[in-house]
């Protein structure tokens, strides 16, 4: 069971996608997409992990065995893009509520 990190990432992604498929409330769908993004971030950070290593920062570093820095840099990109996606989806949800008066994605008014 050394791959627990990847199993946790797979569980997060599955839970998020299942919630995005089954929930009706638009805010809950946005939360589900955010959970999927968290799972992807966890997977990216877990990919670069090396055993008995420290963060790749030389300030007062106790040893020179360091984890891989590129997945961490890409995780930073991923976090910011996740934030942008969530902000856009929430603003569209607010716009839909303003226009139709409901946040239910299966309401008949939204389908016309």
């Amino acid at each position: 069971m050394s791959n627990l990190v990847f199993v946790a990432a797979a569980m997060l992604i599955t839970v998020g996608l299942y919630a995005a498929m089954t929930r009706r409330n638009l805010i809950k769908i946005v939360m589900a997409v955010s959970v999927v993004g968290s799972g992807v971030n966890l997977f990216l950070v877990g990919t670069g992990y090396r055993e008995n290593s420290i963060a790749p920062i030389f300030t007062n570093a106790p040893s020179l065995a360091m984890v891989m820095p590129t997945p961490q840099a890409l995780t930073l990109t991923s976090i910011v893009i996740n934030l942008a996606i969530v902000a856009m989806m929430l603003s569209f949800a607010m716009k839909i509520y303003q226009h139709y008066g409901t946040l239910d994605s299966r309401e008949r008014r939204l389908k016309k």
Binding site: V80, A87, L90, S91, M94, Q98, G101
Partner: peptide, 20 residues
Amino acid sequence: EVFAAISLIAITMFTAEVSK
């Protein structure tokens, strides 16, 4: 840039008139 962007998002969402 990040400070201004997130502040702008927060302020815009907080002051938007949501009710019909």
